[in-house]
């Protein structure tokens, strides 16, 4: 208990330092946030153009599609705040600066995680909150208990995406390079999930439900939240997001620790 309190205290202290460091580049900071928000808005415009002549994509009308997309962006924003810098773990390993995390009396995972608190993710929030808000009113939604599912989806989604970032980063403990994997696995997977899962073949659906559970990030929760019926998976699965997120993250964390053990025995 004491150590948990201390951990939280230490984390908030380091977060403060990290934010101060990022605020040193104020102009870049603002441009970064606006840039992200614009990029997502661009994707939304593409979706709008896409549906202009066709009306719906496998029964998903424009605002439903926007909601699906924005839900993924929202939890990605939360994930980025805590875990985005795991993407550059390989650079720390290559130039030897990772060793510093091993000569301090705190847990290396915790230490690395606390090192950066990415405030650039506010661009994601800017876009996704506006988009979810617009979709909510345009689709005439009236949530009560669904707010809990929504919250669960954001937390679960952040854990699932953060977990994959952590798992990809730990590959660097073996190979010293992992950045490429991000572009081959994470990026296409995230793009795939911007559209309803039902349009993809069964193999892909099974993959994103049972192996890399990205279906729990947005598609399955969106089924409940928008009151849709899934052809393949019952909507209630979407409520399981936080649970799936916790399990997946725990597994990825174990994998990271396994990588760390390998690093400790083989060096870089």
């Amino acid at each position: 208990m004491v150590s948990i309190m201390r951990g939280i205290g230490l984390y908030s202290y380091m977060v403060g330092a990290s934010i101060r460091a990022q605020l040193q580049y104020r102009y870049a900071f603002v441009m970064n946030i606006l840039g992200w928000a614009m990029t997502y808005a661009g994707t939304a415009v593409t979706m709008w153009v896409l549906l202009y002549s066709f009306g719906a994509l496998d029964g998903w009308i424009f605002w439903e599609l926007i909601f699906l997309f924005a839900l993924a962006v929202l939890s990605w924003g939360v994930c980025m705040i805590f875990f985005f810098h795991f993407r550059s773990l390989d650079q720390y390993i290559v130039n030897g600066t990772f060793d510093r995390f091993l000569v301090r009396p705190i847990h290396p995972f915790f230490h690395f995680m606390a090192m950066k608190f990415d405030v650039g993710a506010f661009g994601q929030f800017l876009f996704s909150i506006a988009a979810v808000g617009l979709a909510y009113s345009n689709l005439h939604l009236h949530w009560t208990w669904q707010w809990l599912v929504f919250l669960g989806a954001v937390i679960g989604g952040a854990l699932i995406q953060g977990g994959l970032l952590v798992a990809i980063s730990s590959v660097a403990f073996w190979t010293t390079r992992s950045e490429r994997l991000y572009w081959v696995i994470m990026w296409p997977l995230k793009s795939l999930m911007n559209y309803p899962l039902s349009i993809y073949p069964r193999l892909v659906q099974l993959l994103v439900v049972f192996i890399l559970p990205f279906a729990f990030v947005n598609y399955l929760p969106a089924l409940i939240l928008l009151g849709k019926t899934g052809r393949v998976f019952a909507p209630f699965w979407g409520a399981l997001s936080p649970l799936v997120g916790a399990i997946f993250f725990a597994l990825c964390f174990r994998f990271w620790m396994l990588g760390l053990d390998r690093y400790k025995s083989a060096g870089s």
Partner: peptide
């Protein structure tokens, strides 16, 4: 100085 906007 900062090219973020141009890029996007």
């Amino acid at each position: 100085i900062e090219t973020g906007g141009v890029e996007d």
